[in-house]
Design a protein around this nucleic acid. Structure first.
Length: 470
RNA sequence: GGUCCCUUCGUCUAUCGGUUAGGACGCCAGAUUUUCAAUCUGGAGAGAGGGGUUCGACUCCCCUAGGGACUGCCA
């Protein structure tokens, strides 16, 4: 549990409001993290709302992906999630209120009329106008939408914690649709109503929403509601600077998990992407929560850098307990056909400390552990077989004889023994080390020789030598 | 096209009118060395361009260029 900042103000409420249309984007994850950290820092609440007003596009699978992603990242909401579509009645009620106040109107433009007006407005450099805006009499018996009656003069200033004041000319903002012709609420209306009802105080979201910030401000005004504080954070781009997409390797939270990144590494990396606390690069969740401040969020978009992510992940793999790591890579190994039983886990726990320093991801860790999972009588790889010249085979046979008498089968003892053996043979370790490693690990990358021998134990090591030499 | 946002080493960033422009990742070199890594030491590497304001600009203003977002009865 993260401790609240001493200067906590219990009134702070933030939220993450993803739309379930496929998977959970890594940018959404970062936005969630910023909202989470900001709330924790100020002792406030962090909420989640699923923006599923588009019933056509929302799927259960996508909703599940969001919850899984959030859970994996360890970003727990302080209250039960809200599903926006369940609040449609309230949204309509809000629109009725706006209609009653004269802040909205019914518009019966046809698609064709709208299309024509749109091209005209574009040519004239103004927003779309509806002839129904000032329509006095009763509406014809035609389908209608409800539009916001937005001011056409003056300016709307969006006070943004990241970007400062952003000024919009009202004549550029159109009468956005609040209620569709089927009576369903639209995004901008639903967001305002829900944020208000959820008592959201700080709207921290991607800066693809800045113009929505202006539009939503107008809705707040029409409703006579207080505005939340807005903070629009820059998006995450791919390594080439373009919007992050499939071709950059990954964009869904689940993909990062599959690639073997640790959630704490993702949190650290994501926090550092667009936010900083001096020169601090590696920090704990508690430190992030203690330090996080929107004023330190940068205003330019950041690019995803796999090298740095790998570096940070390597750090956290080193920090992670061996038991936990064994549990995490067991399924990976299992998917490769290696039975995940107690024996495997035990073997993993003894091998992981030997090789974990070299792994940037859990996948790499699983690869590095491979040498220890081969059978004593597994065939030698061609490269190792090639190393076993008559001379080297004879030398390894002599080494085997020496090894037979070792009682203290530990790394220091074996290290010394190998050195002594090389000296006795009057050769460098390089003259037999690679072959020995190949014989032991069957060609898979293995750690230093002594550690490798310890991994297999005396019996196992001798068995492998005999298998190769006899 | 229009509106809005952004621009410091390759990348993430520090600086918030006066610094030899700092750190991290990556890169290069050296050390280590029984593979691959890892590790240690050292090094190269930046204020998009042009105008202002100022005693003094990376920092403030304007223009240009480049990048991005929005411009839906999607969210």
């Amino acid at each position: 549990m993260l401790e609240a900042h001493p200067m906590s103000s219990p009134s702070v409420v933030t939220r993450i409001a993803p739309s379930p249309t496929g998977y959970m984007h890594i940018g959404t994850a970062r936005t969630a993290l910023f909202n989470y950290l900001f709330a924790k820092r100020l002792g406030g609440k962090f909420l989640i709302r699923i923006e599923d007003t588009d019933r056509e596009r929302s799927t259960e699978g996508a909703v599940a992906a969001i919850f899984e992603g959030m859970a994996w990242l360890g970003l727990e909401a302080d209250e039960e999630p809200i599903f926006q579509h369940t609040r449609a009645d309230r949204h309509r009620e809000v629109v009725e209120d706006m209609l009653a106040r004269g802040g909205a109107y019914r518009c019966s433009m046809t698609t064709e009329e709208l299309e024509a007006e749109r091209t005209l407005a574009r040519a004239e450099g103004r927003s779309v106008h509806s002839p129904w805006r000032d329509h006095a009499g009763t509406l014809p018996d035609k389908p209608f939408v409800v539009r916001l009656k937005a001011p056409r003069e003056g300016q709307t200033v969006l006070r943004d914690l990241v970007k400062g004041d952003i000024v919009f000319e009202n004549n550029q903002l159109d009468d956005l649709i609040l209620l569709r012709s089927d009576g369903a609420p639209t995004y901008n209306l639903a967001v305002v109503a829900d944020d208000h009802d959820m008592h959201v105080t700080h709207v921290i979201r991607g800066d693809d929403h800045v113009s929505n910030g202006a539009r939503q401000s107008l809705i707040y005004q029409a409703l006579g509601w207080d505005l939340p504080v807005f903070a629009h954070i820059p998006l995450i781009h791919g390594p080439d600077g373009a919007k992050l997409s499939k071709r950059h390797g990954a964009q869904a939270v689940g993909e990062f998990a599959e690639m073997g990144y640790l959630p704490e590494a993702m949190r650290n990396y994501l926090a550092r992407l667009g936010w900083g606390h001096g020169d601090d690069e590696l920090f704990s969740d508690q430190q992030a929560a203690d330090w996080f401040d929107i004023k330190d969020v940068v205003s330019s978009p950041a690019r995803l850098d796999w090298d740095k992510l790998n570096f940070i992940n390597r750090h956290y793999i080193r920090e992670a307990g061996d038991l936990r790591l064994a549990g995490l890579i067991a399924p990976v190994l299992q998917a490769r056909g290696i039975p995940s039983d107690g024996a495997l886990l035990n073997r993993l726990i003894s091998v992981i400390p030997l090789i974990k320093e070299g792994a940037s991801t859990l996948i790499e860790l699983a690869n590095l552990v491979g040498f220890a999972l081969t059978a004593d009588d597994a065939p030698l790889d061609p490269k190792t077989a090639g190393l076993l010249t008559a001379e080297i085979s004879e030398r390894l046979a002599r080494l085997r004889d020496t090894l037979r008498d070792v009682e203290d089968w530990t790394v220091p003892t074996l290290e010394q023994l190998i050195r002594d053996f090389a000296a006795a043979e009057q050769v460098g370790i390089g003259k037999f080390g690679p072959a020995l490693r190949g014989v032991m690990g069957k060609g898979s990358p293995a750690p230093d020789l002594a550690s490798t021998l310890v991994t297999f134990g005396r019996e196992g090591s001798l068995a492998r030598l005999s298998f190769a030499l006899d």
